[in-house]
């Protein structure tokens, strides 16, 4: 049986639990939104890179940042 005292905290549970839940929900929501934007941008970058001519694509792959984006996205 769950110890209800942990949940109620002498009546302060009404304030303590929402504080932790708010913080957790805001942080999780912010993380998910940021992660989604990052993945979308990586995908768009690769899409645009692939639409380049073969020569341009090869030149792009020589750039370290572009190479890292292409590699990191393929890993995920």
């Amino acid at each position: 049986m769950i110890n209800l005292e942990i949940l109620f905290m002498n009546g302060y549970g009404l304030y303590v639990w929402p504080s932790f839940i708010f913080t957790f929900v805001i942080c999780l929501g912010f993380y998910l939104k940021t992660n989604k934007t990052l993945k979308k941008l990586e995908k768009d970058f690769i899409k645009e890179a692939e639409s380049l001519s073969k020569q341009e694509f090869e030149n792009l792959k020589k750039q370290k940042i572009a190479k890292e984006i292409l590699v990191s996205h393929s890993k995920n």
Binding site: F30, Y31, T34, N35, T37, L38, L41, E42, D44, F45, E48, A49, L52, L60, I65, A66, I69
Partner: peptide, 18 residues
């Protein structure tokens, strides 16, 4: 979050260059 945001901003700049 900072590292993810930094990568987002860098990719945005790189994307403009494409």
């Amino acid at each position: 979050i900072f590292l993810m945001k930094y990568r987002i901003e860098t990719i945005r700049v790189k994307k403009k260059g494409l």
